[in-house]
Computed example of a mutant assay.
Amino acid sequence: MIDLHYWPTPNGKKVAIFLEETGTPYRLVPVNIQRGDQFKPEFLRINPNHRMPVIVDHAPSDGGAPLSVFESGAILFYLAEKTGQLWPQDQRRKYEVAQWVIWQMANQGPKLGEAGHFRRLGDREGDQSYALRRFGDEANRLYGVLNARLRDQRYLAGGSYSIADIISYPWTLGWKAQGQEIDEFKHVKRWFDEISARPAVQRGLAVGADLSTDTGKLPPEEQARIRKLLYNQRALPVPD
């Protein structure tokens, strides 16, 4: 059994989609990041980076103690290897997939996250025009990278659906909040629509839908508390 420590964000949805696509049994363990569950000692033991998602495999292939894995890219590599699904293992196709998984982790996720962050921030922290332009342009560039890749490839790593698609798709759901227009990228739009129609993707996106809260409907003081918890974090103290 796999425990999925989860909150319904793009990074969490990557893992839920994989588990649904492969029919892998799992147990959902909510990690309420708006309440600070990610800073609890029991969570820090499985992810010192205090971020979700994390998985704990209670039946690892080596037959040993439960094995925990954090970082969504590492989780998808682990699960794909464990299940033998959605990651071809012949050398050329394996690294075709791997490079796009790492592209997502190093480029798409961080930059689209920043684009959305500064657009949500507004003028609460002063003039954000440079940050909006910087990350808006980078988001646009990355959609262009996807568009060029998908012009003559059905999926990101070629002709077969893989963890490269699963890891990149959830971040494209927020194209409007990232200041982009998906119709400008017709090859991305074709790929996006095809993946959105997959039943397992729809099930994965529905996982934990009842957990999330629309922070825009919360009182201002509660919104401020959540922002303080989630943004501008500094190092956690290390016990002597």
Rank of each mutant, 00 (worst) to 15 (best):
Y161D: 02
A59K: 09
V188M: 00
A80E: 08
Q178W: 03
N32W: 09
A157C: 06
Y169V: 00
K111Y: 11
Q85M: 14
R154T: 15
G116H: 04
K186Q: 08
S196R: 14
K94V: 02
R45E: 14
L218F: 01
A131K: 14
K186W: 06
S162E: 00
G36H: 01
V238L: 14
H5D: 05
L205N: 04
I2F: 05
L156Y: 14
G174Q: 14
Q34I: 08
A59G: 11
N47I: 11
P88M: 01
K94H: 14
S162R: 01
L76T: 02
H117R: 12
I166A: 05
G216W: 06
Q178D: 03
R198V: 04
G204P: 15
I182C: 09
L211F: 06
E21C: 06
N147C: 13
P66A: 11
K186M: 11
Q89T: 15
M1F: 12
A65Y: 02
L121A: 07
L150G: 10
Y6F: 15
G64F: 05
I2W: 00
L146T: 08
A16H: 05
Y231C: 07
K14D: 03
R92G: 15
S168A: 12
R190P: 10
G116I: 12
L28Q: 01
L156V: 07
I33H: 05
R203K: 10
L121E: 09
S162A: 01
A80F: 05
V207G: 07
Q89P: 12
W100E: 10
P219A: 07
